[in-house]
Each structure stands twice: as structure tokens, then as C-alpha cells.
Amino acid sequence: MCNECGATAALAVPVASGPEETVPICFADGTVFDGICDHCGQAVHYAFPEAQLCETCRDNAYAHF
């Protein structure tokens, strides 16, 4: 799912320079993302790249502290 427009058209697609590498892109609005959030599964720009979490999931995790 696209974190920008909400469409279910976000997929990780292979890149031409190396088919084993993928880049998440939304086919509805053309947004290219950093990756897929490990917690919620949305295509996102990572707020916490080391843990591969989006901003919402990071905030939810920090709310417990």
C-alpha cells in the first residue's frame, strides 16, 4: 500500500542495474520509496532506517516508553 496516496498499487519492482535489487514504487502516483515497513507493510520513506520502520510505526513503538 502506498503511504502517500493510499492506493494498493505500490510494489517492489526489480531495477535494471541489478534484477536481484528491488525498489518500491507506487504505480498510482509514481512515488519511489525507501522500502517496505517491516511492521505495517506499507511502502514508505523510512523514519528509522536501521529498523526499517515508517514514521507511524516508530511513533507507536516509542509511545510505550
Rank of each mutant, 00 (worst) to 15 (best):
M1Q: 06
M1P: 01
C2M: 08
N3D: 14
N3S: 14
N3H: 12
E4P: 02
C5H: 12
C5A: 13
G6V: 03
G6P: 04
T8S: 04
T8H: 04
A9R: 02
A10L: 02
A10G: 11
A10T: 04
A12R: 15
A12I: 05
A12N: 12
V13P: 03
P14H: 08
P14V: 05
P14R: 15
V15L: 09
V15M: 09
A16H: 08
A16Q: 11
A16S: 10
A16W: 07
S17V: 08
S17G: 13
G18V: 06
P19G: 10
P19H: 13
P19W: 15
E20P: 07
E20F: 14
E21S: 09
T22W: 09
T22C: 12
T22D: 08
V23M: 13
V23Y: 06
V23F: 07
I25P: 01
I25N: 06
C26Q: 01
C26E: 00
A28P: 01
A28C: 04
D29A: 00
D29S: 00
G30V: 03
T31M: 09
T31K: 07
T31A: 10
T31E: 09
V32M: 15
F33V: 01
F33E: 00
D34Y: 03
D34C: 04
G35A: 08
I36P: 01
C37T: 08
D38S: 06
D38A: 07
D38E: 11
C40Y: 05
C40R: 12
G41S: 09
G41T: 03
G41R: 05
Q42I: 00
A43H: 05
A43D: 02
A43V: 03
V44Q: 09
H45E: 14
A47L: 01
F48I: 05
P49G: 10
E50F: 04
A51E: 14
Q52M: 06
Q52L: 05
Q52N: 06
L53I: 12
L53G: 09
C54F: 11
C54I: 05
E55K: 15
E55L: 15
T56P: 02
T56R: 15
C57R: 08
C57E: 07
C57N: 06
C57P: 04
C57W: 02
R58T: 10
R58S: 12
R58G: 03
R58N: 08
R58W: 13
R58E: 08
N60G: 14
N60P: 06
A61G: 06
A61W: 14
Y62N: 12
Y62I: 13
Y62D: 13
A63R: 15
A63M: 11
H64N: 09
H64V: 10
